[in-house]
Design a binder for these strands. Structure first.
Length: 278
DNA sequence: CCCTGCCTGCTG
DNA sequence: CAGCAGGCAGGG
């Protein structure tokens, strides 16, 4: 199943890509689609990045960052279909490859993106990032501060549904449409519930299930560098473990009731009407 | 608060 | 060939 990258997938990509590029210099860049570079211009981006070594890679929410030796950083967001691959330069280029970083070991870091929603930003040392949106992100869902008290304080008075709240990156960063459904299923909360109606017990279960599910699916995603390359970074291995997303009209894995698909905030949502009572 | 635009490929 | 998939910005 093709799924869009959320926190567990971004973690997977980082864990596969970082060891392959860390310490290498970016010797040249090929930009096939300049519009993929959102800030600054593609010419300035290349000028600032070429010759720099990559010191580390990190994740924040669904963003990835390449930290360069001169303390500038490349920020990227894969959005729906973005993909990073490290390949020998003679390997056939994936369709929709928009940016290629030519590395000092002869390999290439390639960014491909079918739907072309993914974006790159370059933030120079000392420059404030007012561009990428990374500064507007809320808490990391795996951090200790992201507890029941925090969730209730930020969401507890909202009229919108709890599902829409979980997708609000300015409160908790990294959850998308798939894992919001998976988290709410385990927390036994109907996605259509107004956030303001959740009980103390439900906030507690939700706060527990957010890191539990994200870590679980991150673990299930584990893949070797070779397997990642063979599958062109398209095979997220945790999909067989999804309990509700993609399983509408199938029996609930917990109670057997038929799972229901609805639309909440314009997003396809699947839940169990028995386990997750409205 | 909700809606649209951005994109391509897959499905019915 | 219309409809859908969904992250996020921007606008009404």
């Amino acid at each position: 199943m093709i799924i869009m990258p959320e926190l567990p997938e971004i973690e997977t990509i980082k864990s596969v890509i970082e060891p392959q590029i860390k310490g290498l210099a970016i010797e040249n860049i090929t930009v096939n689609r300049p519009e993929v570079i959102a800030q600054p211009t593609d010419a300035e981006f290349c000028e600032a990045v070429i010759g720099q070594a990559i010191s580390a890679m990190s994740r924040r929410g669904k963003f990835l960052m390449l930290h360069l030796k001169n303390k500038s950083r490349i920020i990227l967001h894969l959005r729906m279909t973005g993909c990073l691959l490290v390949m020998p330069s003679h390997y056939p280029m994936e369709k929709h490859t928009h940016i290629v970083f030519h590395l000092s070991n002869g390999k290439e870091l390639r960014f491909s993106d079918t739907r072309r929603f993914g974006r790159f930003w370059l933030i120079r040392n000392g420059e404030e990032d007012t561009y990428s949106g990374i500064e507007k992100l809320g808490l990391e869902p795996l951090s200790a501060e992201c507890d029941a008290k925090y969730l209730q304080s930020r969401f507890g008075k909202r009229k919108k549904t709890i599902k829409q709240c979980l997708l609000d990156q300015s409160v908790v960063a990294g959850i998308g449409n798939i894992y919001s459904d998976e988290i709410l299923f385990r927390a036994k909360i109907c996605p259509a519930r107004p956030a303001g109606s959740l009980t103390a017990e439900e906030w507690k279960r939700l706060a527990e299930m957010i890191p539990e599910r994200l870590l679980y699916f991150t673990t299930k995603n584990h893949i070797t560098t070779e397997e990642y390359l063979e599958t062109r970074g398209q095979d997220y291995r945790n999909t067989p473990f999804l309990q509700v997303y993609g399983h509408a009209d199938e029996p609930c894995p917990h109670c057997g009731e038929t799972l229901v698909r609805t639309v909440i905030g314009g997003r396809s949502s699947v839940y169990c009407p028995n386990c997750q009572k409205g």
